[in-house]
Simulated assay, not measured.
Amino acid sequence: MSAPKEYPVEVHIGVLTDDKKELICGVPKAGVTTGSWQYDGVEAGQGGRRIPSHLDLTYVSYAEKKFWRVNADLPKEKILQLFREGFMVEGNPDSTGEIPLEEGTYDEITIGAAPGGVVVAWLSGNHHRKEVCRLKAEEIFVDKNKFRPHPQYDETQEQFFDKKYAINISDSTKTAIAKNGIPFGLWDRYREKYNYRFVLAPYDSKDKITGLYRINYNGESEILMDAKLVAAYKPDSIPYDVNFDFTKYNAEIIFNDAEMLQVFDKLRKSFPEQPIDIVLVPGFMYNDFKVVVQCKDKKIALEKFKVKRVWGG
Score class of each variant (00 low, 15 high):
K206V: 08
D207G: 12
D207R: 01
D207L: 13
K208G: 06
K208H: 03
I209T: 03
I209S: 14
I209E: 11
I209Q: 09
T210G: 00
G211Q: 00
G211Y: 02
L212A: 03
L212M: 11
Y213D: 07
Y213L: 09
Y213Q: 06
Y213A: 03
R214D: 06
R214S: 09
R214F: 05
I215Y: 13
I215L: 13
I215C: 11
I215N: 12
I215T: 06
N216C: 10
N216A: 09
N216M: 11
N216D: 09
Y217G: 10
N218V: 03
N218Q: 05
N218P: 02
N218S: 09
N218E: 06
N218I: 01
G219E: 08
G219T: 08
E220T: 09
E220W: 08
S221R: 12
S221H: 11
S221M: 13
S221K: 12
S221E: 03
E222L: 10
I223L: 14
I223K: 15
I223E: 15
L224K: 04
L224H: 04
M225W: 14
M225N: 10
A227D: 15
A227W: 03
K228D: 05
K228Q: 04
K228N: 09
K228L: 05
K228F: 05
L229V: 06
L229R: 12
L229G: 02
L229Q: 10
L229K: 12
V230D: 00
V230M: 02
V230L: 04
V230P: 07
A231I: 08
A232M: 12
A232N: 10
Y233S: 01
Y233P: 01
Y233M: 10
K234P: 00
P235C: 07
D236L: 14
D236P: 00
D236H: 06
S237E: 07
S237M: 06
I238H: 05
I238T: 05
